[in-house]
């Protein structure tokens, strides 16, 4: 177990290093100059050069990278070129919003996706199954940003039940939650459609197995067989997909926060890329990567918790 943990941690660190190198390189290759973005296109070349020197942009790329790593390792992710505040501060301000959105999105995805998938499997071949699969096919086909716009048109512009976008801040929790309903729906709908399909096919596979017949022969109710015998055995593929969906939901916040004008990390990363705000982008990408790698690690732990036969076979 300790060996596994050590190997995992090393993989974690290596992934983050690789990600940060790539981001650094890409941001340098991309056209655009932070000095121009900050000072405007009317600025003089002297002023820009002075600013570049001040930001340390006149030094070679590799030196700047090493410098960044050195400070990042100590928890200092640099100062945003654009906002002129420490990156850490930018992130901690916006983290709660994105985290809430992502968590709500994942919760809805898991609950709705697994429930619909199990219902479809239980009603295999009936109208209910057919209707759920049609919904999920549509869910998979629709892009999230387009769905967001439709949701806004219907529930905000048309019915006026919910705000079309923006965020009132956490001082009013109810209002805050209200403004997250549409973004969460937009984020979770596609993912739950995917999960419903995976759940259905996995459950159908399990239903054919002998122990399900044993459970039925024991006189257990249909619901109990479904929940206590079929679902746990169908979980391994489901958990695999859920792990991948964490990545999809975290990156999905970039699109959703922009459509709904939510001041979260997704919107921040979008702005920072546009502004060539290297340090902010760097920190955010590393943070997103860390979340995804952690999710994958949790999935691997979940496998062993689900299936006792896998114990000792984990690598």
């Amino acid at each position: 177990m300790q060996v596994i943990l050590l190997r995992r941690t090393m993989g974690f660190v290596l992934t983050l290093i690789a990600v940060s190198v790539i981001v650094f390189a890409v941001m340098n290759v991309l056209p655009g100059d932070p000095a121009i973005t900050i000072l405007g296109i009317d600025s003089t070349e002297d002023a820009r050069a002075a600013l570049r020197a001040e930001l340390g942009l006149d030094r070679p790329v590799w030196l700047r990278y090493l410098d960044w790593v050195w400070h990042a390792a100590q928890g200092d992710f640099g100062t945003s070129y654009f906002f002129r505040v420490p990156v850490t501060e930018l992130i901690t301000e916006r983290l709660p919003l994105t985290l809430s959105l992502a968590l709500a999105g994942m919760t809805v995805t898991v609950v709705v996706g697994i429930t619909l998938g199990m219902i479809a499997a239980a009603r295999h071949g009936t109208f209910g199954d057919w209707a759920i699969m049609l919904f999920s096919q549509m869910g998979i086909a629709v892009p999230a940003f387009w769905l967001s716009i439709l949701l806004v048109l219907l529930f905000a512009v048309g019915l006026r039940w919910l705000p079309p976008g923006g965020f009132p801040g956490w001082d009013e929790p109810l209002l805050a939650a209200r403004s997250l309903i549409l973004p969460t729906t937009a984020l979770a709908l596609v993912q739950s459609a995917v999960l419903a399909r995976v759940t259905r096919s996995s459950a159908l596979e399990v239903m054919r197995l002998d122990f399900v017949r044993t459970a039925r022969a024991t006189g257990l109710s249909r619901w109990r067989v479904l929940r206590r015998h079929i679902l746990p055995n169908a979980l391994v593929p489901i958990v695999t997909i859920v792990g991948m969906q964490v990545a999809a939901v975290v990156t999905g916040t970039i699109v959703i926060e922009n459509v709904f004008y939510l001041p979260g990390l997704g919107r921040l990363i979008f702005q920072s890329i546009a502004n060539r705000d290297l340090f902010t982008v760097q920190a955010l990408v590393v943070l997103f990567a860390a979340i995804v790698v952690t999710a994958n690690f949790l999935v691997d732990i979940a496998y062993v918790l689900i299936d006792p036969r896998l114990k000792g076979r984990m690598t």
Partner: peptide
């Protein structure tokens, strides 16, 4: 049927490993 299964009539099957919930 569900009401009498296990209580009045029970059944065992061929492949005992497959017939038991592995989890």
């Amino acid at each position: 049927w569900r009401a009498i299964r296990a209580r009045k009539v029970a059944m065992i099957f061929q492949e005992p490993l497959a017939a038991l919930n592995p989890l």
